[in-house]
């Protein structure tokens, strides 16, 4: 997933007007545009349209009924709880890791960066599995947890942990390249002017990376609310108790209650669209700021 961070601050227009020597004949252009759009329609538009069509197939009443069902509401609530815990924790971690990595030199830094990326490389199913191995009945702390009547696996804490794992790197991955590019001049200037560490962080560093930070939070939130595989392993699928929205979609779907499944899915699809809109807005702002700085430095 780290690939996306590279594109976010580039401006989406060619720098130089193209002339005949560096452009293609019109028919080639139209052919290429046509092919690309067909591919994207097939893989992006059609699935998106299908979600909303299927959701409303049995009419609007059925749609609303599916959403106000107590189990659906419980799933929505749990999804928000998981996100509300996972996002701030990973935000604090991301800022802390980016501060250590970009403002100081130390041995093993590149290993640390690779380790932070690890959760991207791990299958969500395995992310769930490892927590079962630790907190499950037969796990490391299994008997201790049973004795003290603490439930982690097949309960909310497990779901939160799995969510934290799969969204672990997002904020750090956004901030590290950004803060690396900005260097430490401004922080040093703050230091010479008498600012303390916290003052430098709050008044200089964070305002400077606010768009990257927001971008990371948006991605973290989207993934936290939409995670399926990892949460599926640790949830236990207890209706109204340990089901998040994606898991609720699965249950309804497997019960052949397609209209209800797609109704809940359409909420998640809306969330995805809002995420994309916010992301585009943030990218636009970041690019705007960057180009301002670039113009002035010429």
């Amino acid at each position: 997933m780290s690939g996306i961070s590279t594109s976010q601050y580039s401006h989406y227009h060619s720098k130089v007007a193209r002339n005949r020597a560096t452009s293609e004949p019109a028919w080639v252009r139209y052919l290429l545009i046509g092919t690309a759009l067909s591919f994207l329609s097939l893989f992006l538009f059609v699935p998106l349209a299908a979600v909303f069509t299927e959701a409303l197939r049995k009419g609007f009443d059925t749609y609303v009924t599916a959403l106000v069902d107590p189990d659906a509401l419980a799933a929505i609530k749990l999804t928000f709880i998981a996100a509300i815990i996972a996002v701030p924790l990973n935000l604090v971690f991301g800022v802390s890791a980016a501060w250590a990595i970009t403002k100081f030199e130390f041995k093993g830094k590149s290993i640390l960066i690779t380790l932070i990326d690890l959760p991207f490389a791990v299958s969500p199913v395995i992310a769930g599995l490892i927590y079962v191995l630790i907190f499950g009945l037969q796990g490391w702390f299994g008997s201790y947890l049973v004795d003290n009547d603490i439930k982690i696996i097949f309960a909310v804490p497990g779901i939160v942990l799995a969510t934290i794992f799969v969204t672990f790197p997002f904020v750090a991955r956004e901030l590290i390249p950004l803060m690396q590019a900005q260097g430490k001049d401004e922080e040093e200037a703050g230091l010479v002017l008498g600012a303390s560490g916290w003052q430098i962080l709050w008044r200089i560093t964070l305002p400077n990376v606010k768009w990257g930070l927001l971008y990371g939070v948006i991605l973290t939130n989207a993934r936290a609310m939409g995670e399926f595989g990892a949460v599926s392993v640790v949830s236990g699928h207890i209706r109204g108790m340990t089901n998040t929205m994606p898991l609720h979609v699965e249950i309804l779907y497997n019960e052949y209650n397609y209209a209800a499944a797609f109704a809940v899915a359409s909420l998640l699809a809306l969330l995805a669209l809002v995420t994309l809109a916010l992301k585009t807005y943030v990218e636009w702002h970041a690019a705007h700021d960057a180009s301002l700085a670039e113009d002035a430095s010429k």
Binding site: G226, F228, L268, A272
Partner: peptide, 10 residues
């Protein structure tokens, strides 16, 4: 951005 389960059923 789209949750994988949603993509799956779509």
């Amino acid at each position: 951005a789209l949750p994988t389960a949603v993509a799956g059923i779509a």
